[in-house]
Simulated assay, not measured.
Amino acid sequence: MDVAVSKAERILRWRQCALATLLCLFSLLAAAQPEPQASASLAEQRAKAVTQVVLGILSYARWPVEPAQLRLCVVGPTEYTDDLLKGATQATGRPVLVRRLLASNGTIASECDSVYVGKLGNDERTRLFSSLTGQPVLSISEGGDQCTVGSLFCLRVSDNQVSFEVNLDSVARSGVRIHPSVLQLSRRRPATP
């Protein structure tokens, strides 16, 4: 009878040990998952940083006829425009009217002073930039890989900062004048953490 009891005790202890091990593993996995609030606040921080960079770029741009209210159109799906879409005011006090438009909207060149371009297919992107050719419209692409395709500015968003590149050829053809300081800023390499 002692053998049966000790065998039952060993099984019970083994089960308790296995259960404790599983609980430890699950708690480690739960701790390793990012908290939804933390990732949401990181997304909000990126959106605010993008807004600051976009407003900064716009403040150093000059149009042939300066608009009293700057019209910024957001085209295509974007990741970082939540803060920008709330509306903004430049440091000079000039309001920035921000609205979403479809890439196929034929009035973008006449109704927008600047365009924030999100993810578009190649055909949509080609049509959009063809419609902007020769028009004084400043374009900013959310993806940095699009700077060779027609945008004046291309954002590079990372966890630590937002930087940008300038397509000098597109700037020269746009009719929008960009202050040389902004062009110099784009040449600076982002700091490596």
Rank of each mutant, 00 (worst) to 15 (best):
M1W: 11
V3S: 14
K7R: 11
I11G: 06
A18I: 08
A18R: 14
L28K: 07
L28N: 09
A30K: 07
A30W: 10
A31W: 15
P36E: 13
Q37L: 15
A40M: 10
L42E: 15
A43H: 11
A47W: 01
A49F: 03
Q52S: 15
I57E: 02
Y60W: 03
W63V: 00
A68Y: 05
V75W: 14
P77H: 15
D83Q: 13
T89H: 02
T92A: 13
V98D: 09
R99D: 14
S104L: 12
G106P: 10
I108R: 06
E111S: 09
C112P: 02
S114N: 06
G121T: 05
G121W: 03
D123A: 08
T126A: 06
R127Q: 10
F129I: 03
L132K: 06
L132H: 05
P136K: 01
S141A: 10
E142K: 05
S151G: 12
F153Y: 08
Q161N: 14
Q161E: 15
V162F: 12
F164Y: 10
L168C: 09
L168V: 11
D169M: 09
V176W: 04
R177Q: 00
R177S: 00
R177N: 00
L185Q: 04
R187F: 01
P190H: 01
A191C: 07
P193A: 05
